[in-house]
Amino acid sequence: MSTLTRALQRLSLTDLHSVPKFLIAVRMKKWVDKPEVGYGVSYRRKVHFPEEYTIKPLEVTNLGGRDPVTGRLVVKGIGGGIKHKYHWINWKREGPKEGPPKVERVIKIMKDGCRTAFIALVACENELKYILATQNMKAGDLLQISSHIPRIPVRPNEGDAYPLGALPAGTEINCVEKYPGLGGFLVHAAGTSAKIVRKAPDNHVIVQMPSKKEFLLHETCMCTVGKLSNAEHGSTPIGSAQKNRELGNRPRSGWWQRKTGRFGRKLRRLPPPKSFGGDGGDGVDQIKLTLAGLP
């Protein structure tokens, strides 16, 4: 009896450090934020990226419209189709800050099943990487990359990469960085290009997107010169229902929705140039408060 008392004396009540996971899953099941479409998450496929950049085509998991985290069905029209390996594109094209530009050679123009524009395998010294191919790019081309912004704008060739500030107004560009150093972010689709409109105060440049909206970007943002390849993609009909299934889209029907603006925007004045500001790094912190018994 005395040993039992002694044992009980040592016993103390503390909170559990971590609640077992299955408990959370059961209790919180009702309180999951439903994933929303249009915030940079792909519900078509999940790519298994390795730690280091590689040109080896990567394995993917097709999601069929499901959220990769919660597994909830988010998009209804996706599923099936041919599984394509993913070619990891190196979005960062950085050249020397001063001195002569870096030169890369195009090895091959290839087709990637996961995107609309063609891709180009380029080589420089010991490095091999993929970039988005421009319209007239072909194997053997030499591309120049520089991060230097000269006083007089450069005269670029197609496929070259320069900062926005180094290019003359009216240049067609693609794969534009949103924030300096982030990597090509805007204008990726086949046959599209943005246009440099004019310089703006405070080291900024106004760029017109394919949607005709104008963005105010920092002049050190890198971009590739030229229009993206495979321009016929947009005007090529899918052809048959079966072909659409091969592309991974499920059968659907729908009524004509006049007001969505899907088939052309209403003609009104463009909004003023949109500035993104900052370097894209200062995201606002969010904390989640917890209370026992409540979600």
Partner: peptide, 11 residues
């Protein structure tokens, strides 16, 4: 109400 309000944005 708690589900909505328990998420606090730190400014």
């Amino acid at each position: 109400h708690w589900w909505v309000q328990s998420k606090l944005t730190i400014r």
